[in-house]
Simulated assay, not measured.
Amino acid sequence: MKTHILIGKLFLDSFNILKEIQKEIQKDLKSLGFQEEIEVEFQSLNFMDSFKKNFFTLLMLSIMIDSKISKKNIVKYGKIILYLRQIVTSTDNIIDDESKGIIFISRLKNNVVSNSLVMLFCQNFLTKTCLEIDFKSYLSQKVFNKIYSIAESESLRDRE
């Protein structure tokens, strides 16, 4: 029973940190000259909706919380996770001519152009956030190695 309570508390804490991460991403987006055209779809989620939509993100944040990583660094790693998710989603959107994800440009109706631009500025913010992390720390090296292994596994897909 104690384990269930601990896991529930970790997920609730990760949900609260996710809201902070989302606010930080919104701050990043406000630095863009066309920020009034950007729509972000994560403001109105309650815990259960977020749990369904962001399970793996919440799980990763929970693991970081349980590992006693500082909240400041969890927010940075969380931003990296969300920017990576959006970049992967935007890439998939270009291939499938869709408009999914959490960040959209309302005025652009061409999905390829819109997703390309979203991907570019997410890459810019991802790079900026990565540069804020202490590369000498063992944890950051481990995280970047894991990010590389995810990228490597994505390249194993069929081209079809």
Rank of each mutant, 00 (worst) to 15 (best):
Q35P: 02
F47N: 11
L18D: 11
F51Q: 15
E41C: 14
T57L: 05
D28W: 00
K19H: 11
F11C: 00
V40W: 07
I65Y: 04
D66V: 03
I7M: 05
S70C: 14
F34R: 11
S70D: 11
Q26L: 09
L32W: 04
K27R: 13
N54K: 01
E37W: 11
I63W: 03
K2P: 12
I21F: 04
L32T: 09
Q22G: 09
D28C: 08
K9I: 06
K30P: 07
F55W: 14
L59S: 01
S44M: 14
K27S: 08
E37L: 14
K9A: 06
I5C: 03
Q26S: 08
E36N: 12
L12F: 02
S67D: 13
L29K: 01
K23W: 07
L18W: 12
L10N: 05
G8A: 08
D49M: 15
Q22D: 06
S67T: 02
D28M: 00
S14P: 06
E41T: 13
I7W: 02
N46V: 06
S67V: 00
I21W: 01
L29Y: 09
E41M: 10
I25Y: 14
K19D: 09
E36C: 15
I69E: 06
I69L: 09
H4R: 02
E24P: 01
Q35Y: 11
I17Y: 08
K9Q: 07
F56Q: 07
K72C: 05
M60T: 08
N54R: 02
L6P: 02
S31D: 10
D13N: 12
E41Q: 15
L59V: 00
K27D: 10
K53N: 08
T57S: 02
F56Y: 13
M64Q: 02
M48D: 14
F42M: 12
F55S: 14
S14I: 00
E41G: 10
S50V: 05
F51H: 15
K9H: 09
Q35V: 05
L18K: 04
G33E: 09
L45M: 14
I21L: 04
F15T: 05
S31Q: 10
D49N: 15
L59I: 01
E24M: 10
I7D: 01
D49G: 15
K2R: 12
L29V: 14
N16V: 09
I65D: 00
K23F: 08
I63S: 07
V40D: 06
L61F: 00
G8V: 06
K23Y: 07
K52H: 07
L12E: 02
L32F: 02
E24N: 09
Q22P: 01
L61N: 03
Q22K: 11
D49Y: 10
M64T: 06
I65W: 01
E37D: 15
L29F: 07
M60R: 05
K27P: 09
Q26P: 01
F51N: 13
S14Q: 07
E20I: 12
L32C: 11
K72R: 06
K2L: 12
S50Y: 12
